[in-house]
């Protein structure tokens, strides 16, 4: 057993260089996924450790009211950030339901995006809020709309030499309603059975904007395009809620696994999205 290679870059530039120099090494940050049962699995060849890399951490407002979150920002910082509470409250809500304190102290938004599990807890929120992923490589920096980022079961648009640098959440319309629901195996420290996040906006009694992100109902986090189409342009109320639920039945084929069943997943995500539409239909002030 040879020792694992290890480098701890002090800057994004160093990290990108290390990634290019060691294409077979893993990028490690909060390690909440990569080190699970580590003694039972083969060790990686080497590690590029970006934990607490200052340039990758922090939450800041950027141009025009968008919020930029460094990839190595742990969930605990998202939970406690006033800026996130104001601009992306459903991201804070999702973060608060990730694992528990210990996982929130280590797990990061970049890790969630990079692992790209179909049950990644923040990923439906990034879809609903139309986030962008910022990637750096020796070739420069590029921005990928998050909706194009997951490409299959744990596969992504990330190139072999790229590093996830930040997630940017654009400013939402002030009248938009943000909604979030995780149904997990239990109340905390739980893997999701289904997750749904939505941004819904009503003007003059009709839905004018609808983005719905879903988790744990497909091989990757997905937008519910059919349900969105059923909502946009439709009037508020039960009929639209029912139409959105019906559209989900047509577009989703969830699976049965050790955490839940296909019928439960479909029925529950339908109920939750239906509830979102009803909540957004009610005249109460946006929360």
């Amino acid at each position: 057993m040879t020792a694992t290679g290890y480098v701890r870059p002090a800057s994004i530039a160093e990290a990108v260089a290390a990634r290019a120099a060691h294409p077979d090494w893993i990028v490690l940050c909060g390690a909440t996924d990569l080190m699970v049962e580590a003694p039972l699995r083969p060790a990686p060849v080497g590690v590029v450790d970006v934990w607490a890399l200052a340039e990758l951490c922090g939450i800041a407002e950027v141009d025009g009211g968008a919020v930029r979150i460094g990839a190595a920002t742990p969930w605990r910082d998202v939970v406690t950030s006033p800026l996130i509470a104001a601009r992306a409250p459903i991201l804070a809500a999702a973060a608060r339901e990730i694992g528990a304190l210990q996982i929130q102290a280590r797990g990061t938004i970049g890790g969630n995006v990079g692992t790209s599990s179909p049950v990644g807890d923040s990923l439906p929120v990034l879809l609903a809020l139309d986030a962008t992923v910022e990637l750096a490589s020796p070739r420069g920096t590029r921005r990928v709309p998050y909706r194009d980022y997951p490409t299959g079961y744990r596969t992504t648009a990330l190139a072999a030499d790229e590093l996830i640098v930040a997630i940017t959440i654009p400013a939402a319309h002030p009248g938009a309603r943000q909604l979030w629901r995780k149904v997990g195996t239990r109340r905390a420290q739980s893997i999701s059975k289904i997750m749904a996040a939505a941004l819904l906006r009503v003007e003059a009694g009709r839905f004018v904007e609808a983005r719905i992100g879903l988790g744990a109902v497909a091989n990757r986090p997905i937008r519910a395009a059919g349900a969105e189409a059923a909502i946009v342009g439709a009037p508020v109320g039960e009929a639209t809620a029912d139409a959105a639920a019906a559209a989900l039945a047509a577009e989703l084929t969830p699976i049965t696994d050790v955490r839940s069943t296909a019928p439960y997943r479909l029925a529950t995500v339908q109920q939750v999205v239906r509830r979102f539409v009803l909540e957004a239909s009610s005249p109460s002030s946006p929360d």
Binding site: T4, R8, M35, V36, A38, D49, R76, Q102, A105
Partner: peptide
Amino acid sequence: CTVLLDGAPVNACLVAAGQ
């Protein structure tokens, strides 16, 4: 295996020595 790492509670089974 909870310990405080730089003052924050973490699971020591999910921290690499190098970190």
